[in-house]
Design a protein around this nucleic acid. Structure first.
Lengths: 361, 361
DNA sequence: ACTCTTTATACAAACGTTTGCAAAAAGCTT
DNA sequence: AAGCTTTTTGCAAACGTTTGTATAAAGAGT
């Protein structure tokens, strides 16, 4: 049924052995840097390897060694550059450790998720990274019971014995909201993310907490439920700005939403930040390129990917009996040009028409 | 040096054999759907497999069978959602064929590219997909000589014996420019992509060709050299609009650039499309969400990924002696709200302030 | 020179499959 | 009931490594 494709008969450890006049086990020991090898022999073997262009067969290695040098990465889609940033961090850490990366996208197909986890657990990968997983409950058990190493990214672990990495979402939202309050805003709108994500919940809590801390009463009408996409941001801002008493500032749960807010503000003949201040969350690369450049809460996305990977590798390589708990990374408010004091509005026109964007970083 | 992690002794084909009272080769044949198996035996074996939760060890399989059921994907970064769309297409096709996807990012590290190609060729993957590759020459030979299956995506094959998939960039640019000319524009600005990419070159040619076809003289001052990023779009539009005789329309080499143009137009107190018509290229998801929604040349990105994958799989599985040539996919002009006749400008204000966006699709 | 470590190498088994070959079982034909 | 074909099953070898155990070579100490 399956046609064999047998490529050029690959050079194996035995070819090297023959070529350099030693046994194949010696070759293996040279490859794996064993101590008791006569320098001269080592030399001869190495030589033969480069001459014949030897590359070890990873499958044979995994078969006997049990390790595949591969880690699996499960994501659900390639929305925006949020995920790209995380992957970049992962990729770097993975490459450094000489592992490879197997990619699984779920595209909202729930069922597939748990089924592939099983197959992963059986040899294909040594560990698994899950970014922003939905319905983990389904396969968390499977993973846990098998003692299969895994780390969650951007998932607020409800029980802290689940190894995970995320950002200080609540603190970040708190900082952003407090900043707006500090520069004088009293009516601050908020557009949420998709509330099934923990991060969305946490950001809302941070917003509320900062209001409370600033002596501003929470008003439900100032909160619009979004979904992390630009169009809902547009819609949300339109809704908020249509209020009888509209907000002077809008805090968006991510940068894409903020871009939608930009559009809505403009569409109504208003200006950012003179008429409406805007603050985002994430600090995706576009945030700095946009006009006016976006004041936003920076989430260390690459860092998150990198750290999660390192945690995972430690679990894989050090045969721990306990999992590694969870790590929370600090966020940072990046002040750019999209927010100013409401009182500034009047004087703002004296500034140049083309905002100077990133000068202050 | 390496600590063994030996997980729970996995159930193998032999366990199943013992459990169901047959030999392990029979089990293997049941798994691989051989014809001469007594239905009752098959039943018994299947039963044991589900009971013991058997999953085949892929490494052992590859070792003997030569096939790893993995295909490698080489990309250089996760810019914008352009790459995401392509990956989605790839991922779907790969999943359908029950293969897995190994991800390699090069992050502008040229050297690594060629080195890993070698290691891939030795067992880890059965084939390779390269998206928008730079300096292929370096390792194209390696691949070609080894007879290792590979397909390039979004690379204009100079010699048509290189298997590749891309979009009709020139035709698409031609269509867009012609469209602008048809609705009355005579001065059409153009912002290029990164000219090291073939697609950028082709789009420029399409632009020139359409001008010629419309009896409009090409003017070098109307072409600004960009790099596919939003900030260069902003810069480029500012430059073009500062000309003594500025263009009434700007054709951007991709959607991100078009967004930059949007910003520049606004920043000068002008409006899209009333004062400056804008057309993009790609049709990334954001293009439809933006205000005004962007008229753009749709590149069938997912389709490209899917088709490239299918080509690759055919090469892998059907043991062809000849490679598969190259496939070019048609583009489609998606008319939305960002371009109108220059004469419309005067009357445009009668339209509602909030453009109706995607209604006409 | 003779045992005793230490260093260096070789052999063989194992990892979990697939598959060619051979043997056993079952059906047919006479 | 013997002979033949066809279906069904089992054994063993192979894939390319790693690694435990055994052996050979080389120094060290007497």
């Amino acid at each position: 049924m399956i046609t064999k494709v047998r490529r050029s008969p690959n050079t194996t450890i035995k070819d090297i052995a023959r070529e350099s006049g030693v046994s194949y086990s010696t070759v293996s020991r040279v490859i794996n840097n064993f101590e008791h090898i006569k320098p001269e022999t080592r030399e001869r073997v190495m030589d033969a390897m480069t001459r014949l262009g030897y590359v070890a067969n990873q499958h044979a290695r995994s078969l006997v060694g049990g390790r595949s040098q591969v880690i699996g990465l499960l994501i659900h889609a390639f929305d925006s550059s949020y995920i790209g940033q995380i992957i970049q961090g992962i990729d770097e850490a993975v490459a450094e450790a000489h592992y490879d990366l197997m990619l699984y996208t779920t595209h909202r197909r729930k069922i597939r998720e748990s089924s592939f986890v099983v197959s992963l657990a059986r040899g294909l990968a040594d560990g698994l990274l899950l970014v922003l997983p939905r319905d983990i409950e389904a396969y968390l058990d499977t993973l846990g019971q098998q003692g299969f190493p895994f780390v969650l990214i951007d998932y607020a672990a409800t029980s802290s014995d689940v190894p995970s990495v995320n950002a200080a979402n609540q603190q970040g939202a708190y900082d952003a909201t407090l900043y707006l309050a500090k520069i004088g805003h009293r009516r601050i709108g908020f557009i949420t993310g998709d509330m099934v994500a923990d991060s969305a919940q946490e950001r809302l809590m941070g917003y509320k907490q900062a209001l409370a801390g600033s002596g501003i009463a929470f008003e439900a009408e100032l909160v619009f439920q979004g979904d992390f996409y630009q169009s809902k941001g547009f819609e949300g801002a339109n809704s908020l700005l249509s209020l009888d008493n509209p907000p002077t500032a809008i805090f968006a749960s991510n940068d894409m939403i903020a871009f939608g807010v930009y559009e809505a503000v403009r569409n109504r003949g208003l200006r950012t930040p003179e008429d409406v201040s805007v603050v985002g969350f994430d600090d995706i690369p576009q945030a700095a390129q946009v006009h006016p450049s976006l004041t936003t809460v920076r989430q260390p996305l690459q860092e998150m990917g990198r750290i999660a990977t390192q945690m995972l590798l430690r679990w894989i390589e050090e045969d721990l009996d306990e999992p590694l708990g969870y790590t929370q990374l600090a966020t940072e408010l990046i002040v750019r040009d999209s927010a100013c004091s409401p009182v500034d509005s009047v004087f703002y026109r004296s500034r140049s028409a083309m905002p100077s964007s990133d000068e202050r970083r």
